[in-house]
Computed example of a mutant assay.
Amino acid sequence: MLALVTPFSTRSVIMKREQVVEAIVATKIERGLSWEAIAAELELGTVWVTSACLGMNSMPEKPAKALCQLLDLPEGSQRILMSYPTKSWDQAVPQDPLIYRLYEVVGVYGDTLKEVIQEQFGDGIMSAIDFSMDVDKQVDPKGDRVVITMNGKFLPYKTW
């Protein structure tokens, strides 16, 4: 039987974003790395690097290359890390308790946040593009506190 040679046989393996994410997470666990340590190595913010590593943001060339070298990622990973993702998530209410609680916060306080933001800034939204987020730990004798800081540019709605 003859082997069929196609133009694709000489190309590098085309990976899917999910495969790159799996490789990143597996290597992180195997090496005992933290997202904070990876972000420090890339000289970028922990939340942003984590989001990009989980496939929700594209990485510029320099940090994508550095991440691939740091984690010895498979060939083709850098191209995937640099590509523009389609940002989507499961529309069902998540079952993970931590993520569910964040949904609960938005469910309980979403309308309140909207009212307060629009009262202070006018009719518009907080950008999730011109945006940063940090997670900090506040030590407290009654139980440590999670501090999430979201910082987004206000974008007023336009009229025309």
Results as ranks from 00 to 15, higher is better:
Glu119Phe: 09
Ser83Trp: 02
Pro60Tyr: 14
Ile80Gly: 00
Asn57Leu: 09
Gly76Val: 03
Met59Trp: 01
Pro63Gly: 01
Leu67Pro: 00
Met56Val: 09
Gly110Leu: 05
Leu98Pro: 00
Tyr84His: 10
Gln91Asp: 12
Leu102Gln: 10
Leu81Tyr: 01
Gly76Arg: 00
Gln120Glu: 14
Leu54Trp: 04
Pro94Ser: 00
Tyr84Gln: 13
Ala66Trp: 02
Tyr100His: 14
Pro63Tyr: 01
Pro63Asp: 01
Tyr109Lys: 15
Glu75His: 03
Gly110His: 05
Lys114Glu: 07
Gln91His: 06
Ser77Trp: 03
Ser88Asp: 07
Cys68Leu: 05
Pro63His: 02
Pro63Arg: 02
Gln95Gly: 05
Gly55Ser: 02
Asn57Ile: 06
Gln95Ile: 15
Gly107Tyr: 08
Tyr100Thr: 08
Ile99Pro: 00
Pro74Val: 05
Gln69Met: 09
Asn57Gly: 00
Lys65Ala: 15
Pro74Tyr: 02
Lys87Leu: 08
Leu98Thr: 11
Pro74Gln: 04
Tyr103Asn: 14
Met59His: 02
Thr112Gly: 07
Lys87His: 08
Gln69Leu: 10
Leu54Ala: 10
Thr112Leu: 13
Lys62Phe: 08
Pro97Ala: 14
Gly107Phe: 06
Pro85Glu: 06
Ile80Leu: 05
Asp72Ile: 03
Thr86Ser: 08
Ser83Arg: 05
Gln91Thr: 13
Gln69Ala: 13
Ala92Trp: 05
Leu54Asn: 08
Glu75Arg: 04
Leu54Tyr: 04
Met59Asn: 01
Asp90Val: 07
Met56Thr: 12
Val108Pro: 03
Leu113Lys: 07
Gly107Ala: 07
Arg79Thr: 11
Val105Thr: 11
Ala66Thr: 13
Ile99Ser: 09
Ala92Thr: 12
Pro97Phe: 09
Arg101Glu: 14
Ala64Phe: 05
Asp96Gly: 04
Gly76Lys: 00
Leu113Thr: 08
Pro60Ser: 15
Pro63Asn: 01
Val105Asn: 04
Leu113Ala: 09
Leu73Gln: 03
Asn57Pro: 00
Glu115Gly: 14
Thr112Asn: 09
Asp72Ala: 13
Pro94Leu: 00
Gly122Met: 01
Glu61Gly: 10
Leu73Trp: 01
Leu81Ile: 01
Trp89Glu: 13
Ile117Gly: 01
Phe121Thr: 07
Lys87Cys: 06
Glu115Tyr: 12
Gln118Asp: 02
Gln118Tyr: 04
Glu119Asn: 10
Asp90Ala: 07
Lys87Pro: 00
Trp89Asn: 10
Ile80Ser: 02
Thr112Ala: 11
Leu54Arg: 08
Asp111Met: 11
Leu70Pro: 00
Asn57Trp: 11
Arg79Met: 08
Ile117Ser: 04
Glu75Tyr: 03
Pro85Ser: 10
Leu98Val: 12
Lys62Asp: 07
Gly55Asp: 02
Pro85Val: 12
Lys87Gln: 12
Asp72Ser: 12
Gly110Thr: 05
Ala66Tyr: 04
Met59Ser: 02
Thr112Tyr: 12
Glu119Pro: 02
Arg101His: 14
Leu71Lys: 01
Trp89Leu: 13
Ser83Val: 04
